[in-house]
Design a protein around this nucleic acid. Structure first.
Length: 952
DNA sequence: GCCGTCACG
DNA sequence: GACGTACGTGACGGCG
């Protein structure tokens, strides 16, 4: 970046454009409303204001090209509504309505537009755009530059004068001293005085009651300025005015503090760094296409002209050339950051460019028990840095490392920047709303950095970008994606940390090796982002990503950090109880078998049962071993084989003890005393979450013994747990998707759906029905969702295959629409290779046209199930995204802890239970709206208790 | 590291 | 006519 030539010659003066982004969005929005009908993308995202903004920005950029003197440009935004002005005067802007519903999603898009045009997007927490503009205007003035403020906001008019002018972007009209005088009746230097007197109903600035702009200007012109006026108020001839002024002098002074713009905001980016850059054609066009701005796309392409790629490649500071959206990187450059100046220049560059790939290195894969070891950043493909902060010396480095020993510091720690300094420097960048943070599974990094007091936002996630477009095709881990999309194999973790028993933590990895590994990860993440973000548009997965997966990340990160309290004493008590009963059972089993053997070995058990005891019903699995699963053992038990029943009992206890009561005790985080699961966002191809370490989604509930375990999941004293679950959501969605009138009516009337099915299929009245019939119907209903087969249903019900087939035939006679749905879904999948949920999530089924019949049938059943299971997953995710805000708005402090596919668990202060239940129910039941109006009602049942067992 | 088993929705 | 089956997950112990 070169400093502009700031010689004294006025014709040579450089010029800066400061665009009031926030002001513009509102004007563009209301202009659009007044004019045509509101416009939106095909996925429903409203875009009217974004288009207006993009058009304006494009025009501005064309102007800057034409006018060689424009050297600097930035768009400035407001952040939250809380600013220093609300501290001075709490009512400031307090009478403002919340922004219109269909404008809200456009705020982030407008920032994205700014980045796509390669223009710095500036904002700062606690300050309004106006203050930032005033500060930059003052700085530009001091550098001898001309300043054009692109806005028509009267609050900015106090800045006009000298080399500062304004430009009304809608009317394309310049606002100079004359226009300000026309509006306020005084020159720009007296605008503040007039505003202090006149007040402003829009911003809720009080002013002096009864005095408007006209009178204010009159008074100021007569007395000179506000202070003189207030001092000499006695001299005012008109009684009313005089008294009001004297009475409300303080209000006028407060008003002045409110309207006076700050010119000394401490900004992270220097005004001289706001240089005009050419937009990157690929980025810009991808953005415009994503938002379906067809006309503008055409004009922008024309603007770039033929061969624009060469131009781009020729730019000195630009990213490498691309092929199919994949940056072609010949050589890479990775550096270790060991001094603050180097770190700060990386941060400045990230601020300038508006994005940065971030990766954290830690001591553990489990985010809740990991501590930070280092951070890597990448801004341009092929280039990345690693900032070590938590490396320790490796003790057993071998006896030959004399150099290392000699170089060692007093405490033998590797040389690295102090962690506190690095965190302090990174925090503004990682929290800057104008800089996109790109990560691979960035939820992990969010959880890690939350420990350091950093809230990483806004974010993009390459893992989720991949998941949204390629679910079912392959995994979404970084190594796999790098191989697939970039054709590179990253250094494996094993290569730097070893494997097995001799594996070391990342903190012990020497810093040079750590840099190679960590910097590469950030670099690859950035390059993957380049590719996947662009591809997202073609895959028609933008809406899924933007409205579901991306906003879910911080919600899940928060849940993981909350964790859930467990009663360790109860777990340990259950463990010993189960253990004792298992010992007794083992003895009895050995007695019955006539010899000692390992009850936990299916192989040994099979041999005892079928070889030694010669029982019938022997089946062999694919490995040639006897099958000894529940079905087999239950069959034997029903025939009176006592040993089989004992083994079943033992297995249940063994499962409960090893997987739950023992394991959960070890999962309690010593820091929090709670269990923190990890929810995998990109594991299940249907869109469901998965839970691990521990898996909280398979805590027992179906048996008496198992349910005891749920009592160990407890609320903190003074709190309750709320469990809210969707009732029959998958069957409801089936009724909606397949459009089955009678099922829809049954749900509308709140009937017992399984009984209703039974009565229709078996042609018997619900009253006095044989419970077996309802049970069969329930199995059929589930079977339908799973892509029914006579074999599966027969096994589930324990009836013959022909009998099961008879049920299925009967079912389809009653519900021919469901058969149609199944056939249509299968043939769609055969043709396209994927199926879709109600919210556009694609689930790919590469086996759908396999020549292996078994694999093909498998895919066909999955194809029938995926839209149902996946739509339910989409709906609960939508609810989860909305809930934190919805609870906040009602000032409820409930915390969302767990998700179990159709159930959400909250921890709530006891006195807020009722209100919370109402909010949770209404958000969950309405979660499909407004994107989709279902033709069946969704209902949510909520339970309350001191523990999960009680609440469920 | 795979397999069988079994916990959940 | 044979294939080998209900859909989606994760954790455990046994076994090679």
């Amino acid at each position: 970046m070169t400093e502009p030539d700031v010689t004294g010659d006025p014709d040579q003066k450089h010029r800066i454009y400061l665009v009031d982004g926030s002001g513009y969005i509102f004007r563009a929005y209301f202009a659009m409303i007044r004019g045509r009908r509101p416009m939106s993308r095909s996925d429903g995202t409203p875009t009217g204001a974004v288009l207006g903004f993009s058009n304006m920005l494009f025009k501005l950029i064309q102007d800057t090209q034409a006018d060689g003197r424009v050297s600097h440009l930035a768009v400035i935004f407001d952040t939250s509504r809380k600013t220093f002005r609300s501290e001075i005067y709490p009512e400031y802007k307090a009478n403002r309505d919340a922004p219109p519903e269909d404008l809200i999603p456009q705020f982030p898009l407008v920032r994205e537009a700014t980045r796509a045009f390669n223009v710095p997007a500036i904002e700062k927490e606690g300050f309004e755009a106006d203050d930032i503009i005033a500060t930059y205007a003052a700085q530009a003035r001091a550098k001898g530059m001309e300043c054009v403020i692109v806005s028509s906001d009267k609050d900015l008019m106090q800045l006009v004068g000298g080399d500062v002018t304004m430009l009304d972007p809608m009317k394309n009209k310049e606002i100079g001293v004359a226009e300000v005088e026309e509006k306020f009746g005084v020159g720009p230097d007296r605008v503040i005085d007039v505003q202090s007197l006149a007040g402003d109903s829009v911003d809720n600035i009080p002013g002096v009651p009864g005095i408007g702009i006209k009178t204010a200007a009159l008074l100021i012109n007569e007395f000179g300025d506000l202070d003189s006026l207030l001092e000499r108020a006695e001299e005012i001839p008109q009684k009313g005015r005089r008294e009001k002024l004297i009475e409300n002098a303080d209000l006028a002074r407060v008003s002045r503090d409110l309207v006076t713009l700050k010119t000394d905001v401490n900004l992270d980016i220097d005004v001289m760094d706001l240089t005009v850059e050419m937009p990157k054609p690929a980025d810009l066009i991808a953005f415009l296409k994503e938002n379906e701005f067809k006309q503008l796309t055409g004009r922008v392409m024309e603007f770039f002209g033929e061969g624009f790629r060469d131009e781009v490649a020729a730019l000195p500071d630009d990213d490498p050339p691309e092929e199919n959206g994949v940056p072609q990187v010949d050589e890479v450059h990775y550096t270790t950051i060991l001094d603050m100046d180097a770190l700060k220049s990386w941060i400045r560059e990230a601020e300038r460019v508006g994005h940065v790939a971030v990766d954290t290195e830690t001591t553990s894969l489990n985010a809740m028990q990991a501590s930070l070891v280092g951070v890597s950043l990448s801004i341009h493909p092929g280039s990345a840095c690693y900032i070590p902060v938590g490396h320790v010396s490796k003790k057993a480095q071998g006896g030959f490392d004399f150099d290392g020993a000699a170089e060692g510091q007093a405490d033998d720690m590797p040389r690295q920047l102090p962690k506190e300094d690095v965190i302090k420097a990174l925090k503004p960048l990682l929290e800057d709303p104008g800089v996109l943070k790109i990560g691979q599974n960035i939820k992990y990094d969010q959880v890690i950095l939350a420990q350091e007091g950093i809230t990483v936002a806004p974010i993009d996630d390459t893992m989720l970008l991949s998941y949204c477009q390629d679910a079912g095709l392959h995994g979404h881990g970084m190594d796999e994606l790098a191989q697939l999309h970039l054709g590179v194999t990253p250094i494996s973790f094993k290569e730097v940390a070893g494997t097995g028993k001799s594996q070391i933590t990342f903190a012990e990895v020497p810093i040079d090796k750590a840099t190679e590994y960590a910097a590469e990860d950030a670099d690859i993440t950035l390059r993957l982002h380049n590719h996947l973000k662009r591809q997202l548009v073609k895959a028609k997965a933008v809406s899924l990503y933007e409205t579901i997966e991306r906003p879910l990340v911080p919600v899940i990160a928060q849940m993981e950090q909350e964790g859930v309290r467990v009663d360790a004493k109860l777990l340990s008590h259950l463990s010993s109880d189960f253990g004792a009963r298992m010992e007794d059972l083992v003895k009895e089993i050995h007695n019955l078998a006539g010899e000692e053997f390992n009850v936990g070995s299916p192989k040994q058990l099979g041999e005892i049962l079928f070889d030694k005891m010669g029982l019938s019903g022997a089946k062999k699995g694919k490995t040639g071993a006897y099958t000894t699963d529940v079905n087999v053992l239950e069959g034997l038990a029903a025939d009176g084989v006592e040993l089989a029943q004992k083994v079943l009992d033992w297995r249940q206890l063994s499962k409960l003890k090893s997987t739950y009561t023992d394991a959960l005790q070890g999962q309690i985080n010593p820091r929090t005393g709670r269990i923190h699961t990890s929810f995998a966002l990109a594991a299940a191809s249907t869109g469901r979450l998965a839970s691990s370490e521990p898996n909280v989604q398979n805590i027992p509930v179906r048996t008496e013994e198992g349910r005891k375990l749920r009592e160990a999941f407890v609320a903190e004293p003074g709190n309750k747990l709320i469990s809210a679950d969707y009732s029959q959501i998958e069957l409801r969605l089936l009724a909606h998707i397949a459009d089955i009138q009678s099922l829809k009516e049954a749900f509308e009337q709140g009937l017992d759906i399984h009984a209703k099915t039974a009565s229709q299929v078996f042609n018997t009245p619900i009253e006095g029905m044989d419970p077996m019939m309802r049970r069969s119907a329930k199995a059929i209903n589930f079977g339908i969702i799973y892509g029914i087969s006579a074999f599966g249903l027969a096994r589930q019900l324990g009836v013959s295959r022909t009998e099961a087939q008879g049920y299925i035939d009967q079912y389809f006679i009653q519900y021919p629409g469901i058969r149609d749905y199944m056939e249509k879904t299968k043939s769609f999948c055969h043709e396209h290779g994927y199926v879709q949920t109600l919210f556009g999530r694609k689930v790919h089924l590469p086996g759908i046209n396999d020549k292996n019949g078994a694999r093909r049938s498998f895919s066909e059943r999955a194809a029938i199930n995926a839209p149902i299971q996946g739509s339910a997953a989409d709906i609960i995710k939508r609810a989860m995204i909305r809930l934190p805000d919805a609870l906040n708005e009602e000032k409820l402090s409930a915390r969302m802890l767990l998700q179990v596919h159709d159930e959400l668990i909250f921890e709530v202060p006891a006195d807020e239970v009722e209100k919370t239940v109402a909010v949770v129910k209404s958000v969950m039941e309405g979660a499909a709206l407004p994107a989709l109006e279902l033709s069946v009602p969704l209902t949510v049942d909520a339970g309350i208790g001191d523990n999960w067992g009680e609440a469920h």
